[in-house]
Write a protein that binds this DNA or RNA. Structure first.
Lengths: 214, 214
DNA sequence: GGTATTGTTAACTACCTAGTTAGTACATGG
DNA sequence: CCATGTACTAACTAGGTAGTTAACAATACC
């Protein structure tokens, strides 16, 4: 009985606004990923709505399941892509110089979405033993710790501080305001995206680094 | 005959652990709050299930709406209570001495639920201008900043560091590992609840404080 | 002892949401 | 131009979810 609800045929006289290409697999995939990044970053896995992602991507829900298997898989894909994007630049930066912490902050500016993804990861998927892109991330962080240890041997960094704890602390100092915007506001009266705040924080971090390394 | 489902009376010889009173308004309220604290802390507002909270509290969903108006109100009540609980102890601690950061960590131990509540607050309700218990929290933090400034005047703390940024940073150093357990594990190989990790972090924070204050 | 109030319950509803079905349009290559 | 696989779509479904209803039971109060 194949005459149930007969999907409409694209009428020749229809005036579609910007239907440039009717088929665009890679484009669709990318648009879904981008839309999902926004939605997941803003609302997390539980809070995100699959329909909202589809709509934002200018496609429909089915495509999302066509390219990625499930909501959860989509989240993982988003996180994986975002991590892979950041990995190369992470390797380039100076991790032991006097401006390292302020630099790290500069790099993180405009990447609040990234920090939020990591928070959702920690909160919503915290129980998992394995974490997305585990090896890639671990390598990158281990390399950072090694750099610190070498700098300690050279005498560029104080050698009584544990390298791993130091790395963790530098991440903490930079990421915290983005992770806890409400606390930042309560303490400083400014939101972490405020340029004034960023400048003040940068200045503070430079002083702090100098004091640490002395 | 009103013997429909006959709510059992507390039989004298019965060995119920704590089914003391059939009616226990305050107890029920508290049990709901406690259950909600666990559930919200673990899963956030979107992730938490009202039925799960009710069941955990040993009551039913209606009571939750009877005492608190909605899921969101319940979350706010939980947060408010938790904040009020912590407020007095926050005032007591030494905020400027050499052991202050390590102390702060000790206080936060076993309060991961608290940190997670604050994270959910920041993530899920971040857009709101007003935050739960705004005045209470702000007062407490302002007081802390004032203490720091006074210590700077006395010369107990370096006076070139901005007091507010310093407070923010001390919070960051202590809260970060709990907030980003996955990053903590990737960097140090240990989860933040691991006693070994806590001890190592404590030692590091003490060294760091000494270096900062020098 | 009667009655108003407050606490408690199971069952219900109206809506939402992730995931699916089943079909259509486009492309490719023979 | 026809056959076959790929991209795409609207409508559907099954199960979940916050919030409600309505009846009833314990207590308080007179």
């Amino acid at each position: 009985m194949p005459e149930t609800t007969a999907p409409k045929k694209p009428d020749a006289g229809a005036e579609e606004p910007d239907r440039s290409r009717l088929r665009d697999p890679e484009g669709t995939r990318k648009r879904i990923l981008a839309a999902a990044l926004q939605e997941f970053s803003a609302k997390g896995i539980d809070g995100a709505r699959v329909d909202a992602i589809a709509e934002r991507a200018g496609t429909n829900k089915r495509m999302l399941y066509y390219y990625f298997g499930s909501k959860d898989d989509l989240f993982r894909a988003v996180l994986r892509q975002r991590l892979a994007e950041r990995a190369p630049t992470a390797r380039e930066r100076d991790r032991t110089g006097p401006g390292r912490i302020a630099d790290l902050q500069d790099r993180l500016e405009g990447q609040m979405d990234y920090v939020r993804l990591l928070m959702w990861e920690g909160l919503e998927r915290g129980r998992r033993r394995r974490v997305e892109q585990e090896l890639l991330r671990q390598d990158s962080l281990t390399e950072w710790c090694d750099d610190v240890r070498e700098a300690q041997r050279r005498g560029d960094l104080p050698d009584d501080l544990d390298a791993e704890q130091l790395v963790l602390s530098e991440l903490a100092l930079v990421m915290f305001p983005f992770a806890f915007p409400q606390i930042t506001r309560l303490v400083t009266g400014k939101v972490p995206t405020d340029p004034t705040f960023k400048a003040e924080r940068r200045a503070f971090l430079e002083l702090l680094t100098a004091r640490l390394d002395s």
